[in-house]
Design a protein around this nucleic acid. Structure first.
Lengths: 101, 101
DNA sequence: TTTAGATACCTTGTATCGCATAGTACTATA
DNA sequence: TATAGTACTATGCGATACAAGGTATCTAAA
């Protein structure tokens, strides 16, 4: 049921503040969304290849360097689309719950 | 983004009133959810094989007989689970929108 | 009677998403 | 220098949705 929603959640998250993959996983977990590496890395690559994200390498105080992702203008536009799609889905479900005969 | 949600929507719909495949497509369309035959038939078969639905053949006033689907007790239990999952997802998203730093 | 149209069901192949698993590379510490 | 921790990457699998095509039934018109 979460398919495609993680994309939305990730963009929502990055819209607030840039982050690197492991960081994103932690923050999603705080929002009670369990995501693993095998999911988030391909997702970030897709979003980057579609021009919705960019990244900058940055050294870490401990360990290997990090890829910090941020939204592009195109990414912010896409986020608005996802927002609309999500709201529409909720309206559809509300409709099915109420007046469906 | 709709992946897995159509299952929820279909069960919601059938919880109100039994229906056959073409009928379900029409009713989902009324709720602004576009679904095609190639999606709904396998979905109904899956739900039936999992014991969430049963069906009865019934003759049509015009055309070939129809498979009327209805929820089983197990299907109603599953619907409650999906309801919870959907609400949790919405809470997660609300959380990401608000207090994410 | 035959043909065409509408209705209803079903199947096959393809793309995408999320996950499991395994592997690579950099850093710090013992 | 060897190990543990952190971070990124690649490969293969299962499930969902869609496109496209096919089969069967009934009615009405040619």
């Amino acid at each position: 049921m979460r398919k495609g929603v993680l994309e939305y959640c990730t963009l929502l998250l990055l819209n607030r503040k840039r982050a690197y993959a492991s960081d994103i996983i932690t923050r999603l977990k705080d929002a009670r969304l369990i995501v693993v590496e095998g999911t988030i890395y391909p997702l970030l690559s897709r979003l980057k290849n579609d021009g919705f994200l960019t990244y900058e390498w940055e050294e870490s105080p401990q360990g290997p360097p990090r890829k910090y992702y941020t939204l592009t203008d195109k990414g912010r536009e896409f986020l608005v689309e996802l927002e609309t799609a999500w709201n529409d889905l909720n309206e559809s479900i509300a409709h099915l719950k109420e007046k469906t005969l």
